Amino acid sequence: QIFVKTLTGKTITLEVEPSDTIENVKAKIQDKEGIPPDQQRLIFAGKQLEDGRTLSDYNIQKESTLHLVL
């Protein structure tokens, strides 16, 4: 699982696999929060994550925290 922290300070927990794409993660966030993926920007280690890449591409491991910017 990974954590996604929103600007409001809320933390969302997501069940993911390293092979999941960023697009996939955004879809999971939409399921939980109702935020359309095209409004979501995910930041990890100061980098904006691209939809077509996977979590493992960015070396995002379990218990990692991503930041969600709208």
Score class of each variant (00 low, 15 high):
residue 1 Q to K: 12
residue 1 Q to D: 05
residue 1 Q to H: 14
residue 1 Q to T: 14
residue 2 I to F: 04
residue 2 I to R: 01
residue 2 I to N: 01
residue 2 I to P: 01
residue 2 I to A: 02
residue 2 I to E: 00
residue 2 I to V: 07
residue 2 I to C: 03
residue 2 I to K: 01
residue 3 F to I: 06
residue 3 F to L: 06
residue 3 F to H: 09
residue 3 F to P: 01
residue 4 V to L: 05
residue 4 V to N: 01
residue 4 V to T: 01
residue 5 K to F: 08
residue 5 K to I: 15
residue 5 K to Q: 11
residue 5 K to M: 15
residue 6 T to M: 15
residue 6 T to A: 05
residue 6 T to G: 06
residue 6 T to L: 15
residue 6 T to N: 06
residue 7 L to Q: 15
residue 7 L to D: 15
residue 7 L to K: 11
residue 8 T to I: 08
residue 8 T to K: 11
residue 8 T to H: 12
residue 8 T to E: 14
residue 9 G to W: 04
residue 9 G to P: 02
residue 10 K to P: 05
residue 10 K to G: 08
residue 11 T to P: 04
residue 11 T to V: 15
residue 11 T to D: 04
residue 11 T to A: 05
residue 11 T to S: 06
residue 11 T to G: 03
residue 12 I to T: 03
residue 13 T to K: 09
residue 13 T to D: 05
residue 13 T to Q: 08
residue 13 T to C: 11
residue 14 L to D: 01
residue 14 L to A: 02
residue 14 L to G: 00
residue 14 L to N: 00
residue 14 L to E: 00
residue 15 E to R: 12
residue 15 E to A: 12
residue 15 E to T: 14
residue 15 E to I: 14
residue 15 E to L: 12
residue 15 E to V: 15
residue 15 E to Q: 12
residue 16 V to W: 13
residue 16 V to E: 00
residue 16 V to M: 08
residue 16 V to D: 00
residue 16 V to K: 01
residue 16 V to T: 05
residue 17 E to I: 14
residue 17 E to F: 15
residue 17 E to Y: 13
residue 17 E to V: 15
residue 18 P to M: 14
residue 18 P to G: 10
residue 18 P to F: 15
residue 18 P to V: 10
residue 18 P to Q: 11
residue 18 P to W: 13
residue 18 P to K: 07
residue 19 S to G: 10
residue 19 S to E: 10
residue 19 S to P: 03
residue 19 S to Q: 10
residue 19 S to M: 11
residue 19 S to N: 14
residue 19 S to R: 08
residue 19 S to F: 10
residue 20 D to P: 00
residue 20 D to A: 06
residue 20 D to K: 02
residue 20 D to H: 05
residue 20 D to E: 09
residue 20 D to T: 09
residue 20 D to Q: 04
residue 21 T to D: 03
residue 21 T to S: 08
residue 21 T to C: 05
residue 21 T to A: 04
residue 21 T to Q: 04
residue 21 T to N: 04
residue 22 I to L: 05
residue 22 I to Y: 01
residue 22 I to W: 02
residue 22 I to Q: 02
residue 23 E to S: 13
residue 23 E to P: 03
residue 23 E to C: 11
residue 23 E to I: 09
residue 23 E to H: 13
residue 23 E to Q: 10
residue 24 N to L: 14
residue 24 N to I: 15
residue 24 N to G: 09
residue 24 N to D: 13
residue 25 V to N: 00
residue 26 K to A: 02
residue 26 K to P: 00
residue 26 K to W: 03
residue 26 K to N: 01
residue 26 K to T: 02
residue 26 K to R: 05
residue 26 K to M: 06
residue 26 K to D: 00
residue 27 A to K: 15
residue 27 A to N: 12
residue 27 A to P: 00
residue 27 A to S: 14
residue 28 K to E: 03
residue 28 K to M: 12
residue 28 K to F: 06
residue 29 I to N: 00
residue 29 I to V: 05
residue 29 I to M: 03
residue 29 I to C: 02
residue 29 I to K: 00
residue 30 Q to I: 03
residue 30 Q to W: 13
residue 30 Q to F: 15
residue 30 Q to Y: 15
residue 30 Q to S: 12
residue 31 D to K: 14
residue 31 D to T: 11
residue 31 D to P: 02
residue 32 K to M: 11
residue 32 K to V: 11
residue 32 K to L: 11
residue 32 K to T: 08
residue 32 K to A: 10
residue 32 K to P: 02
residue 33 E to S: 12
residue 33 E to N: 07
residue 33 E to P: 01
residue 33 E to A: 10
residue 34 G to P: 03
residue 34 G to Q: 06
residue 34 G to I: 02
residue 34 G to V: 02
residue 34 G to M: 05
residue 34 G to T: 03
residue 35 I to L: 06
residue 35 I to E: 03
residue 35 I to A: 04
residue 36 P to F: 06
residue 36 P to Y: 06
residue 36 P to M: 07
residue 37 P to G: 08
residue 37 P to V: 14
residue 37 P to Y: 14
residue 37 P to R: 15
residue 38 D to F: 11
residue 38 D to L: 10
residue 38 D to N: 10
residue 38 D to M: 08
residue 38 D to S: 12
residue 38 D to W: 11
residue 38 D to A: 12
residue 38 D to P: 06
residue 39 Q to C: 13
residue 39 Q to A: 08
residue 39 Q to M: 12
residue 39 Q to I: 12
residue 39 Q to F: 08
residue 39 Q to H: 09
residue 40 Q to G: 03
residue 40 Q to V: 09
residue 40 Q to M: 14
residue 40 Q to Y: 13
residue 40 Q to L: 07
residue 40 Q to K: 02
residue 40 Q to S: 04
residue 41 R to I: 15
residue 41 R to Q: 14
residue 41 R to V: 15
residue 41 R to Y: 14
residue 41 R to P: 01
residue 42 L to G: 00
residue 42 L to V: 04
residue 42 L to H: 00
residue 42 L to Q: 00
residue 43 I to R: 05
residue 43 I to M: 13
residue 43 I to Q: 07
residue 43 I to K: 05
residue 43 I to A: 06
residue 43 I to P: 00
residue 43 I to V: 12
residue 43 I to Y: 13
residue 43 I to H: 11
residue 44 F to I: 03
residue 44 F to W: 09
residue 44 F to L: 05
residue 44 F to M: 04
residue 45 A to L: 12
residue 45 A to Y: 09
residue 45 A to T: 05
residue 45 A to E: 15
residue 45 A to H: 11
residue 46 G to E: 05
residue 46 G to Y: 05
residue 46 G to P: 01
residue 47 K to C: 10
residue 47 K to V: 15
residue 47 K to Q: 14
residue 47 K to N: 10
residue 47 K to F: 12
residue 47 K to W: 08
residue 48 Q to S: 11
residue 49 L to C: 05
residue 49 L to Q: 00
residue 49 L to V: 04
residue 49 L to I: 04
residue 49 L to R: 00
residue 50 E to Q: 09
residue 50 E to I: 07
residue 50 E to W: 05
residue 50 E to P: 03
residue 50 E to V: 08
residue 50 E to L: 09
residue 51 D to P: 07
residue 51 D to K: 04
residue 51 D to Y: 05
residue 51 D to F: 04
residue 51 D to W: 04
residue 51 D to L: 05
residue 52 G to N: 12
residue 52 G to W: 12
residue 52 G to S: 12
residue 52 G to Y: 10
residue 53 R to F: 15
residue 53 R to V: 06
residue 53 R to Y: 14
residue 53 R to T: 06
residue 53 R to W: 10
residue 53 R to C: 15
residue 54 T to K: 11
residue 54 T to M: 09
residue 54 T to V: 06
residue 54 T to C: 08
residue 54 T to L: 09
residue 55 L to M: 05
residue 55 L to V: 08
residue 56 S to V: 08
residue 56 S to I: 09
residue 57 D to V: 04
residue 57 D to I: 03
residue 57 D to N: 05
residue 57 D to F: 15
residue 57 D to G: 04
residue 57 D to S: 13
residue 57 D to K: 03
residue 57 D to C: 04
residue 57 D to L: 03
residue 58 Y to E: 03
residue 58 Y to M: 04
residue 58 Y to N: 02
residue 59 N to I: 04
residue 59 N to Q: 11
residue 59 N to E: 08
residue 59 N to M: 08
residue 59 N to A: 08
residue 60 I to Y: 02
residue 60 I to A: 02
residue 60 I to Q: 01
residue 60 I to L: 04
residue 61 Q to C: 09
residue 61 Q to S: 10
residue 61 Q to I: 12
residue 61 Q to T: 14
residue 62 K to I: 09
residue 62 K to H: 13
residue 62 K to V: 09
residue 62 K to A: 14
residue 62 K to S: 15
residue 63 E to W: 14
residue 63 E to V: 04
residue 63 E to D: 15
residue 64 S to I: 05
residue 64 S to M: 12
residue 64 S to P: 03
residue 64 S to F: 09
residue 65 T to V: 15
residue 65 T to Y: 08
residue 65 T to R: 04
residue 65 T to N: 04
residue 65 T to C: 08
residue 65 T to A: 04
residue 65 T to L: 10
residue 65 T to H: 12
residue 66 L to Y: 02
residue 66 L to G: 02
residue 66 L to F: 04
residue 66 L to N: 01
residue 66 L to I: 13
residue 66 L to R: 01
residue 67 H to R: 08
residue 67 H to F: 12
residue 67 H to S: 09
residue 67 H to K: 08
residue 68 L to S: 01
residue 68 L to E: 01
residue 68 L to K: 00
residue 68 L to V: 05
residue 69 V to E: 14
residue 69 V to C: 12
residue 69 V to S: 09
residue 69 V to F: 13
residue 69 V to G: 06
residue 69 V to Q: 10
residue 70 L to C: 13
residue 70 L to W: 09
residue 70 L to Y: 11
